[in-house]
Amino acid sequence: MEVTRDPVSASEREARIGWSQRHPGQARARPRIPWLYRWTSDADSRSSVARNLLRGLICAEITMALMQTSPPGKRDQRIRFDSLASIATGVLLRDLSLHPLQMALAFGSGLATQAFWLRRLGLEQKGFLSAIVMCCGLSLLLRSDAMWVHPLAAATAISSKFVLRVNRKHLYNPANLGVVLAISLLPGTWVSPGQWGNDLAMAVWVLMLGTIVTTRARRLDVSWVFLGAFLGLVALRVLLLGQSWAIWWHQLGNGALLLFAFFMISDPMTIPDRRGARIVYAFVVAAGAVAWQYLLFRPNALIWSLFLLTPLVPLLDRWMPGGRFDWKHPAIG
């Protein structure tokens, strides 16, 4: 291995490094956001600590959630919020490409937008919980090298709840819509589907958390049917191709799949009201995701499948009407 001296001429070198000389002490390599750089640079010990801390946090959250003595309705809301909050903390520690300020800005903007619409439409009693959950979901999924992307996506997503309405229900899952719009329209914005890794232990934790959340909200069916259908189709592919079952386990241990199943598709306001319709819907979304991933070979299958198939919800509601979900009485529906 040789160490080579830069063969360019002095004037070329001057031109190349001109920026550094005009800004002594600052390398141009520094990202546009200085503190983002600082946050991402001292990754060493934190990434190894992060996993254990994440497990600890989630464990504590489950215990706390189970010990809550508040009325069942409020408890559901709290659990949903707590679990997402703890996952978000873990992501901040583990995935160094998400900056805490990006998350804070997403929350600030999302909640302000919620407040604006509630006031304007005179719906103050509706509260902020769903907005908080949405901001959490959005922050967990979206990655950007700019600071304005998260708040813009959050504001757009929340607004969609009040603007894009069909049959007195908002059409799109706000976090899903926000993410899809951001990655297709905004520069420097992406989703890292592999960021969760395949840590089976973490998957199990998320699975357990998700069960608690969705059981209380009586919309467990859609999550389980979706997971079953998706993993069933992956198993079918493994059998047909004669692949190793390790691939199936690899998919089962995918944190992104479990998070999607329990925290995105399970949003009670954007899925069909009737149980039969929800099951049909979950099957269709799972089939769509498998087709996207294994026939079209495109990334982010879950998010795109949900986005493209959401227009089915009002149709299913029309063909198979059912009781509307109410966050205050989650047991009904």
């Binding site: 991402t40 640079s41 990754a43 060493d44 160094l96 890292s192 990334p299």
Partner: peptide
């Protein structure tokens, strides 16, 4: 246009600038 990463495995940056 941009950075390439794996979609079915975690991609991480090595600790750097130490």
């Amino acid at each position: 246009n941009g950075r390439v990463e794996t979609t079915n495995y975690r991609t991480a940056k090595l600790p750097a600038n130490v």
